[in-house]
Amino acid sequence: MGRITETVKVLLIANIIFFVGSQFLGDYAIKMLALWFPENPNFGIWQVVTHMFMHASVSHIFFNMFALYMFGSVLEQSIGQNRFLFLYFSSGLAAAGLQILFTYLQFNSAYQACIDAGVDSNTIFESLDRAVRTNQYQFIPGVSQETVKQLTDVYITPMVGASGAIFGVLAAFAVIYPNLPLYIIFIPIPIKAKYLIGGYFLINVYSAVTGTSLFGPSNTAYWAHIGGAVIGFITMYYWKKNQFNRWN
């Protein structure tokens, strides 16, 4: 889709460097740079940014960077470097914020169930800290396994990936070029950007609400995808309406 722009190139290189470096640093890189649940002792405020450059696997970084390459350069050429960077990082931050909000709701629900079962706060967090050290569930007497699993998964599972920022780019692209025909593998007919990207967004909403993963692993941060897409859409819609009327 045309030449790669300078900002997209830098983002691609930075993500690849982080990924390769994390393979050498292993658990230490995850501990320091992934985004942990704020109650977890591994949490650091810088992680709301650094997690955007961390990826869990080759396939994870490949699909994110492929989307950035395919759509990011066109978007940057359309809105300029500064606006592109603002949209990219604001989408990524919004993704992190929404994901943390919903994980807090999950955590507090499970935590309150433990308290209602007569378990004191110190016992709960001692169990969670053992789960971090052993990477195993520490079941609590009087509390259902499902509740302990929900509590533990939120506490010990870090968030990684540029997906939230990428969803912001995709949503913005669909706002600027809603009727641009796009092709995807195995479907030999063009689909307008607004339908293809909009449909993908709705699939993520369904997965976030129901907990059913239609694409990708079950621990995908769907609320992060939604947060990034919403900010990307709102930001681009505002810019298009107020400053880029030539597209109307």
Rank of each mutant, 00 (worst) to 15 (best):
S90K: 01
G161W: 07
D129Q: 14
T123Q: 07
F84A: 05
V119R: 08
H60T: 09
Q136I: 06
M70Q: 13
F125K: 13
S78P: 08
A117H: 13
D116E: 08
E76L: 10
V74N: 02
G97N: 01
A56F: 08
E146Y: 04
L85A: 03
N108Y: 13
L75F: 09
E146G: 06
L151A: 03
M70I: 10
N122R: 10
F125E: 07
A131K: 11
V160H: 07
G118V: 07
Q150P: 00
E76R: 12
E126V: 06
Y155F: 13
Y104R: 09
G97S: 13
I100P: 01
Q99T: 12
M54F: 12
Q136F: 04
L101P: 07
V74L: 08
Y137P: 00
S57Q: 03
I124E: 15
D120A: 11
Q150R: 14
R83Y: 08
Q81M: 14
D129G: 04
A117N: 11
Q150D: 12
S109E: 11
L151G: 05
A110E: 07
M52A: 14
D153I: 02
A113H: 11
Q77V: 07
L128A: 03
S109W: 06
H55E: 09
V143M: 09
D153E: 07
D153M: 06
A67S: 12
T123A: 12
S57A: 11
I100Y: 09
Y111Q: 00
L68K: 05
V58A: 11
T157I: 00
F53D: 09
Q145W: 00
Q77T: 11
N135E: 14
F66P: 00
Q136D: 11
I100N: 11
F89W: 04
Q112W: 07
C114F: 02
I61G: 05
V160G: 05
D120Y: 06
A67C: 04
V132N: 12
S73Y: 02
G72K: 03
T103N: 14
S91G: 10
A131L: 10
V58D: 09
M70A: 12
L68A: 08
T157M: 01
I115R: 14
E146H: 04
L75T: 08
M54D: 09
T157D: 04
A113P: 04
V58S: 09
L151C: 10
Q99S: 14
S91T: 00
K149L: 10
V74T: 11
L98A: 06
L151I: 08
T147C: 01
D153W: 01
C114T: 05
Q145S: 12
N108F: 15
F102E: 06
A94Y: 03
T103G: 01
Q138G: 00
M65V: 08
D116R: 01
Y104S: 10
A67R: 06
R130F: 07
D120M: 03
F139H: 10
I115D: 00
N122Q: 15
A56R: 15
L93P: 08
R83M: 06
C114R: 02
F53N: 14
S78I: 02
P158L: 08
R83A: 02
I140A: 06
S121I: 15
E76S: 06
M52R: 01
F66G: 03
